[in-house]
Write a protein that binds this DNA or RNA. Structure first.
Lengths: 206, 206
DNA sequence: GTCTATAACGAGATAGAC
DNA sequence: GTCTATCTCGTTATAGAC
């Protein structure tokens, strides 16, 4: 999906990049057009309105992100390891979550079709995380609360990183949360984990 | 500042409301004009550019929010109680954090003057939260990480609430986090705390 | 200081040729 | 299917009278 060939694919591809960089609202069809290199008419042939383009592009982004997240969350490691692996995945903190950021995008929140795509992303992640906490023998309601906390750490960490212009803020939030998990009833065995700010080589999404 | 009288104050007041509802980028000077009831020329007399208006309005919002937060964080209760009181403060989860949401607003991130105001808000909160964790005899770096985690819980909780259209998502994230704090070395004494989603009467900000 | 025009530009979308 | 040209409207901002 990165170097597509059809006009339609190039449009969706360009839209995904621009939406990730600036959000849906501030991205004009014209900008997508320019970035994709196709002509005016082609855009409106494939996507009669901006809404249609947005649903296609955000949908593709959600599918990608969800697939990657599930590879970590559904691995065959022990529950706690899967969880921590997910929390500590390298992320482009300063860019923000491509999907989480859309919750502040009024163009998205006001568009039911778009919002549903965003909702589905988080509902599926919460379900997977809740299941992981259940496997650690927590009652259902506690597992659900902790799943919310874990996902909030990631989304909030992105916000803090962007607010302070410090990519280490996301890493710090994750460390703070994982530290609390580790001190619990049955602690994980972990190699010594140096603290303090710094992020090595981030790459992707929640 | 709620029912101001001068044209300038009415403009700032209207801008704060609109920024909170839709963000800075999507809010036009014209909309502020209409909401405030003043004339075109008055706006541009007091605020030559949209940037000037935004700095004034966002600055006022940050000052308000910071003052309210500090009243909770600087009270004379024990450290952990202040922390939990802050985390559990009633919040309008579906509206999102008036300030945190701005980190997804490209108009804000691209404007250094505006961004600095947002940064200052989070830096001050992180400092206060770190101090609280220090008072619980944690090493400085751990205290700092937990402060990041605590603030991320709030900001991430807002994101989850908006994404799922469920105000209970923020409350759930807070419960999940506080539950981890409670299970720690020296647990808090607390009345029985029923779990499950539901938010009674929200009101304000982080 | 505050007002009513109005200029200059970009947004979203359409028309119609190829 | 893809293109260029064009329409309409809202945005940011300025001009200049009161």
């Amino acid at each position: 999906m990165s170097s597509a060939t059809s006009a339609r694919d190039r449009l969706v591809d360009a839209a995904q990049d621009l939406f990730a960089a600036q959000g849906v609202g501030p991205t004009s069809p014209r900008a997508v057009l320019a970035a994709s290199g196709v002509g005016q008419g082609s855009l409106y042939h494939h996507f009669p309105t901006k809404h249609d383009l947005a649903v296609a592009a955000v949908g593709a982004t959600v599918d990608d992100a969800l697939a990657r997240a599930m590879r970590t969350l559904d691995s065959d490691s022990p529950a706690v390891e899967r969880l921590v692996a997910y929390l500590e995945r390298p992320r482009e903190a300063l860019a923000g979550c491509k999907i989480g950021r859309l919750t502040a995008d009024q163009a998205v929140m006001d568009d039911d079709g778009l919002h549903d795509v965003v909702t589905a992303y988080f509902v599926r992640l919460l379900r997977a995380l809740t299941q992981i906490f259940r496997e650690t023998d927590l009652p259902d309601d506690v597992a659900r609360d902790r799943a919310h906390a874990a996902l909030a750490i990631i989304q909030g960490g992105y916000v803090l990183a962007r607010a302070t212009r410090d990519p280490g803020a996301l890493a710090a939030a994750v460390r703070g949360f994982v530290g609390l998990l580790d001190q619990g009833p049955q602690a994980r065995n972990e190699p010594d984990r140096p603290s303090q700010h710094s992020t090595p080589t981030p790459k992707e999404n929640p």
